[in-house]
Design a protein around this nucleic acid. Structure first.
Lengths: 245, 245
DNA sequence: CGCGAACGTTGATCTGCATCAAGGAAATGC
DNA sequence: GCATTTCCTTGATGCAGATCAACGTTCGCG
């Protein structure tokens, strides 16, 4: 395959019992965790899957937000651009994470795959219908929105008031904690994104990100490993740094 | 009264028809706009009012988030603190604005009055009950959360990627637009908060805020008026500055 | 496997904003 | 209405991180 393409997989009609959503790898991480098996079967009626290669645009700021997405596998960035190309990444999404909250029916940010990604997709109108039927689904959505908002506020504190060192330390710890929540290894932290991406998330340049990693490494707090992984050698020191102590 | 105190006004039992919520100054700005008169009467059962003097703490990060609040009059800041005292203001609230979204039943930020404030207060548990009964109320809450999230993302772009001048220009325009939404004058923009507050919102120091105002003033883009007001003399120029053009 | 491009690191220099300092204006309290 | 405090502005100086530049390393692809 020379030209990467987005693959649409209309889910196979459930024929012999085993249905995708029930076997979903992120079933108890995401929205779906609010639903029991019967309800999940209803959800499955409106869901379709998508495979996306690395470094592909998923949607753009301002696009009609007809769909909501759930990341099953891989990493996604959400970001905003200024006319001159300055970029602010507002979040990295991992498996189980949800995206698509919109304002006036338009996406408020763009989304791009960092690695190859598998997602599932819900038409917004249909999902709204389900929320009317299943109030706990709506509760769950509200909870997710609240969490996102709290994360956004932490990020504002980071961007507005932390030094480069504090930013990198906070970033590593946040990734580690989120991995733990997904029941994935939280120590060698997986950093699939580029230095430029990290910079655009933390309000720094590539060079400063790189220098700061080097500095934390030579002070023995972290160790850079093969395959985009970072070992948090001294987690306590890292926590202190992150909080400015 | 030498020592300022928070006044709790248990609403008067509706006796002769005219009920506070129906006459609420922010009725069609806030959550309540989702409700018709009958539903509003139910809401009124669980609501109580509070008057708070200027520069008073309303709640603190980590407090049990038993209540939700709606600002009727005055200005409130939401903020986060670092152990060494660095502060990031995550938002300014005006009349009609809502606060109290929480994570794990705790407030994720502190709230403080900037001016004297009148608020109404809903016990969270009771409001949750109402949301089950009135799905459009839940929808409305979701909409408010989405808007807040979009605003938070704009603020991340501002904090991470904009210069001091761009930050101040964006700030003034945002305040102007929000005033218009509340059907208040959007041109002489009202800035009741201190330079220090503005700095802590924009990730700048007091001095830089002051210098940047002076600079915008001497380039004729704004005019500083009496009574914490700013006239946007050249709104187009301000817009261009805000977007980095 | 070997070539080219993208990515990462490191160094030298520059600059926007922070910090330090001090005087002026405007609230606040008696 | 005067004193005191707090806030705002302006100036001088310093520094964290940006920018500019160059080289090493990794990865995708033929």
């Amino acid at each position: 395959m020379s030209k990467p393409e987005i693959t649409e997989r209309r889910k196979p009609v459930a024929s012999h019992g085993g249905h995708p959503c029930g076997a979903c790898p992120v079933r108890n991480l995401s929205v779906c965790s609010a639903l029991n098996d019967d309800e999940l079967a209803v959800l499955e009626e409106i869901v379709s899957n998508r495979d996306i290669p690395a470094h592909q645009m998923i949607f753009q700021e301002g696009d009609d937000a007809g769909d909501l997405f759930n990341v099953l596998e891989g990493v996604v960035t959400l970001y905003k651009l200024m006319p001159d190309g300055r970029r602010q990444i507002t979040g990295f999404l991992f498996n189980g994470d949800f995206m698509g909250l919109s304002v006036n029916g338009k996406f408020a940010y763009s989304a791009e795959s960092v690695t190859p990604v598998t997602m599932c997709r819900f038409p917004r109108r249909r999902l709204d219908g389900l929320m009317e039927r299943f109030p706990h689904l709506q509760r769950r959505m509200m909870g997710l929105a609240s969490n996102e908002l709290a994360a956004a506020q932490d990020q504002m504190l980071l961007l507005g008031r932390k030094s480069a060192k504090e930013k990198i330390a906070s970033f590593l710890l946040t990734l580690s904690r989120r991995a733990a929540q997904r029941e994935q290894p939280d120590d060698p932290v997986f950093l699939p994104m580029s230095r430029a991406d990290i910079g655009d998330f933390l309000g720094l340049t590539t060079e400063t990100v790189s220098r700061t990693f080097t500095h934390l490494k030579s002070s023995g707090v972290i160790r850079l490993l093969e395959g985009h992984r970072v070992h948090l050698a001294d987690r306590e020191a890292l926590t202190d740094i992150a909080e400015g102590l």
